[in-house]
Amino acid sequence: MHDAAPPRDLAIEFRNVAYRLENGRELLCDLNLQVRRGETLVLLGRSGSGKTTTLKLINRLLDASGGDLLVEGKPVRGWDVIRLRRMIGYVIQEVGLFPHFTVERNIGLVPSIDNWPPERVRKRVQELLKVVGLDPEVASRHPRELSGGQRQRVGVARALAADPPILLMDEPFGALDPITRAELQREFLDLQRRLQKTVVFVTHDLREALLLGTRIALMETGRLISLLTPEEFVRSSEPMVTAYLEAFGTDLHDWRTH
């Protein structure tokens, strides 16, 4: 059943992937999912549904216990793990900036360890600060001297630094006030129109999913419930999907107007 060669436009492919803990508890079960090159696939689901676990399988922070997982047509185990990770930008849920590095060193980390010349790294950092809407003068500050929203922007800039073709974003705009969040979402759409990265974006916010996703993968207790475009999602009559729609209220028909 795994005979078909992966189509050329697939960046990531899960085939019957499972992830079990050592004690046998199954966190992900029979996951089948294809992420097309250049799309923004949103993983939507409640807390504990396995979204972060799914992301970590892609950059091998976790290793699948069963099934096949392919990145750019090649099984993840066949990749050199360091090379794999350097071509996948990762925005972690807890932001995880290095507290002892300046913003500049944080953002420039992957280019630096990839041995870019320092002058080029510096230029790239300045460029990225503009991209994520930060004042160039924050470059010399430490993370503790930034607001939560600024830190999240730095986290996104850091993931973009070496211009990776794939981005994994784990609730990158979580814990922000609605206005800043909307602003970052707009900027993300702008950026994505220009850069056309393959993005796997985790959220539990339905509005965010509808706004940003080309497709939405709804997860529940380690299983993929449905995989739908936003248009299909709002019209779906699947019980899980309608439960989600109801929980977020009924004014979702204008979800793409802002």
Partner: peptide
Amino acid sequence: VDRAIIEAGRGMGMT
């Protein structure tokens, strides 16, 4: 050292 920081470093491809 904060787990999240280590995870970020590993996820970015630090050896």
